[in-house]
Simulated scan of single mutants.
Amino acid sequence: MTRGPVALDVGVSYGLPRAGIPAAGSFRTWVAAALHGRIREADLAIRLVDEAEGRALNRHYRGKDYATNVLSFPADLPEGVKLPLLGDLVICAPVVAREAAEQAKPPRAHYAHLTVHGVLHLLGWDHEDDVEAEAMEQLEREILAGLGIEDPYREA
């Protein structure tokens, strides 16, 4: 575990109108919380997209023909190349808004959760089986609690 603040460069871009979407600074805060104590330096990009772009990306990269809430694309650097490039996140704003409403969660809290979730994927965390899923969910709970956000897995 590393100590101290993370040297962080987060680029946030928008493929849709920004109304109802948290400010770029919020995404940077959530990324920093997810990385705190785990790595010292990171560069990543976050793109917020509409449903059409989200669906196209999910279909192309995962073979799933629907828009999903968050996609994570870890950096694939050549062997021996040491850069702080962590990867990219794609967050589908309409899916996030719909899920937040369905789950009776504040949209901002759901954006925070999905950002943390995506960053953990960039760090190599996964949820392919029950043991991995529980470990990842517990870490998400801890990170979000540190941000004053309720447990995203709590039943409403």
Rank of each mutant, 00 (worst) to 15 (best):
S72F: 04
D126E: 10
K105Y: 09
L8M: 09
D126I: 01
C92N: 14
Q103L: 14
L147P: 00
K105M: 11
G148Q: 09
L48C: 06
V6T: 09
V6L: 06
P74Y: 08
Y66E: 14
V49K: 01
G37L: 08
E137L: 01
G11M: 08
F27S: 03
A112Y: 05
L147M: 05
L8W: 03
V12A: 03
A135S: 07
P152G: 02
A104N: 15
L114K: 03
V119T: 07
H36I: 01
P94D: 05
P74R: 11
A145F: 05
D76C: 10
G146A: 08
V90F: 01
L147R: 00
L8I: 06
K64L: 09
P107G: 12
A100V: 14
L147Y: 02
I143G: 02
N58L: 01
D126T: 10
A7M: 06
A135N: 10
P17G: 12
I21A: 01
L123H: 05
R154L: 15
E137Q: 13
L44Q: 02
T68S: 07
R3I: 08
E99I: 12
M136S: 06
P84I: 05
A34G: 05
D151K: 03
L57R: 15
F27C: 06
V81Q: 11
E134F: 08
F73P: 02
P84V: 05
R154T: 12
G124R: 14
R59F: 08
T68N: 08
R154Q: 15
L16D: 07
D76Q: 15
I21S: 01
A56P: 01
L139G: 00
V116W: 01
L77R: 10
N58H: 08
A24L: 11
L114E: 05
G63K: 09
P94T: 06
V70M: 11
G54D: 06
E150P: 07
D76Y: 08
L85P: 02
A67W: 00
I46N: 01
P152H: 07
V10C: 06
D126N: 13
G4A: 08
D129L: 05
V49S: 15
A32P: 01
L89N: 06
W125A: 08
G11Q: 12
P5S: 15
I21N: 00
D43G: 06
V90Q: 00
R98L: 14
T68F: 02
T115P: 09
A93Y: 02
R154I: 11
F73I: 11
A56S: 13
K82F: 07
A145S: 11
Y61E: 06
A112H: 08
D50Y: 12
T2L: 13
H36S: 15
